[in-house]
Write a protein that binds this DNA or RNA. Structure first.
Length: 194
DNA sequence: GTATCGATTAGC
DNA sequence: CTAATCGATACA
């Protein structure tokens, strides 16, 4: 939880795909190690989620809906499977590569949404388990909140269980955030999964 | 073995 | 709003 919040504002750099792309984290979701029915780790360790149970500081990349990848950062010690899903970034570097990979020009469409983030950073299952200290994906030191920037929190998006926990964090009114971004209230009034 | 459903997205 | 598309999961 604390890690998720702290990741907001930090810069994520990816050299995957042969070109450097960087973005500032503006939206994340926390998935807890135990008792979280929305987490992939809820029913225990499987080949797919194994990395979540490993040491922190590694990427957990999964494939979903038959076509999208999503990127998480594993953040708790070995044995406890907690991770932070990176939902949106503000594009900072590698705009040409981003526009090509995403087949879009609009800045706001490049890295908004978890599937878009993975596509923009050229990350897929082969990067599952990548060491953030050595691999192509890194989190730069520093960053954080800009002057006057507010952090908001609300229920996670696209899940059926665990909606009672406000474990999605984002920068208020940030144009690069996916989904509702004004307030937690707007979030609650918004879409309800099925 | 078959059926169902996603931590989603793009397009109508 | 729905199709797309396939691995993981549930269940017989």
């Amino acid at each position: 939880m604390a890690v998720a919040r702290d990741l907001l504002g930090r810069v994520l750099v990816s050299d995957a795909g042969g070109e450097r792309v960087a973005g500032r984290i503006v939206e994340v979701e926390a998935y807890r190690s135990s008792g979280d029915p929305a987490s992939h780790a809820f029913r225990g360790r499987t080949p797919r989620n194994a990395v979540m149970f490993g040491p922190p500081g590694h990427a957990y990349v999964y494939f979903t809906y038959g076509m999208h990848h999503c990127v998480n950062l594993v953040c708790e010690p070995e044995g406890r499977a907690a991770a932070v899903l990176i939902r949106a970034l503000e594009p900072l570097e590698g705009l040409d590569a981003l526009r090509r990979r995403r087949s879009r020009d609009d800045m706001r469409s490049l890295l908004r949404g978890p599937g878009c983030v993975a596509q923009g950073l050229a990350l897929s299952r082969e990067h599952d388990g990548a060491d953030l200290a050595r691999g192509p994906l890194r989190v730069l030191p520093g960053g954080g909140r800009r002057r006057g920037e507010r952090v908001r929190r609300g229920p996670r998006i696209g899940i059926r269980h665990g909606l009672e926990w406000a474990w999605r964090f984002w920068f208020a009114d940030d144009e690069y955030v996916s989904g509702p971004r004004r307030s937690s209230q707007a979030e609650r009034a918004g879409r309800v999964p099925r």
